[in-house]
Design a protein around this nucleic acid. Structure first.
Lengths: 196, 196
DNA sequence: CGTCTATTTGAATGTACTCAAAAGCGGTGG
DNA sequence: CCACCGCTTTTGAGTACATTCAAATAGACG
């Protein structure tokens, strides 16, 4: 359980003194999650944000009709949480599960708030993270509103090849906002077109 | 052109010394925009972020088929820009126009970067802003993926009554991701149901 | 007042969904 | 190690939600 990856990751945006790095790491708790294990369950208080050190996670929401929609995937070097509930200390509206056996570092809300005060560099670090997350979501919304399902599917494969190879089509479909059956016919149509 | 609103707004999240406030304000440039005036045009470099002091703005994207999708609205006390292009210094993919005659304060990217260094409190301030923006977009995506058009319409009226009363149905439709014709039939159906 | 755009209405169409059933695939236990 | 179980994927038919196109009406603004 080295912290090389996370320190390198933080180092991309801010440079830490030795003691700052040590303090930061002291706040992290490593958690191993087996495949299909839940890191967060809807209704629970979401008290932590997780950095993926190894493996892959998925956050999804289930609406009142039982329909599942995938909010995000996270590979190593990504942070994931139910941000709304983490920030406002509300019961989670998302589930977060391990797609494969994973190792994550969890940071508690309270500790993060203290970290901001003790090492203000982390304000910058998380500002950049939030900024990128916001931009990603905004671009995703523009795609969702302006492109048909097939083009969104192609973009997804293009943008997230490493994710695509780890997950099922059902999960891709629920990220794109279509049914697995429809994704299947999209793929069948493409295959036909490519042959002819 | 007082800066009361913006200072009060910043004050909600961080408290500034007199000189810090003065410095911050010195970086702002007031711009008056007439109704239908463009603050940002697709293809231009997006060098500024705008705080709405009075009036109302709208950011929208036009895809290659000419279909327009509204990315966000901004009332007084909101910040608006093409965040992707602002951060990465790319040609804008969004247009930003005034829905009504407006007064905005513009902050240049360079000045913002300097501001972060000189007054690190602003890292915190914008971290919180970005965090909220991220959460909003994420919740919007969950709605878009899991609710039918009619429910999204009701939620919109509920969540943004002040915006709803200023804009056209066409603009609401383009925010919800439906055609104006379909929004019209949704409204007609609701009216019928309410009468009977 | 006239023009331009937004809104409504309706008919025809298309994209995506539901339901159902079969085929494929992966994991697990005997 | 193979057979079985459960889940994913495919396929197809019927359906529903939403779009397109067109035309009429209503509203906003100079």
């Amino acid at each position: 359980m080295t912290h090389d990856l996370i320190l390198q990751h933080v180092g991309k945006h801010v440079s830490l003194e030795k003691e700052e790095a040590a303090y930061f790491i002291s706040l992290l708790q490593e958690v191993k999650v087996p495949k299909k294990g839940l890191v967060l369950k809807e209704g629970q208080l979401c008290k932590t944000i997780s950095f993926v050190n190894a493996g892959a996670l998925r956050a999804y929401h289930i609406n009142k009709e039982g329909k599942e929609t995938t909010v995000m995937f996270a590979l190593p070097d990504w942070w994931i949480t139910d941000m709304f509930c983490f920030i406002h200390l509300r019961p989670a509206i998302l589930n977060i599960e391990a797609i494969e056996s994973s190792s994550i570092f969890q940071l508690k809300k309270d500790d993060l708030d203290t970290l901001y005060l003790k090492v203000p560099k982390f304000e910058r670090f998380f500002r950049i993270l939030m900024q990128n997350a916001y931009i990603r979501e905004q671009l995703r919304m523009i795609e969702k509103l302006s492109l048909p399902a097939e083009e969104r599917y192609i973009h997804f494969l293009d943008k997230y090849p490493l994710i695509a190879e780890k997950i099922t089509q059902k999960q891709i479909a629920s990220y794109l906002g279509i049914t697995p059956e429809f994704l299947s016919t999209i793929r069948a149509n493409r295959a036909k077109r490519i042959i002819s």
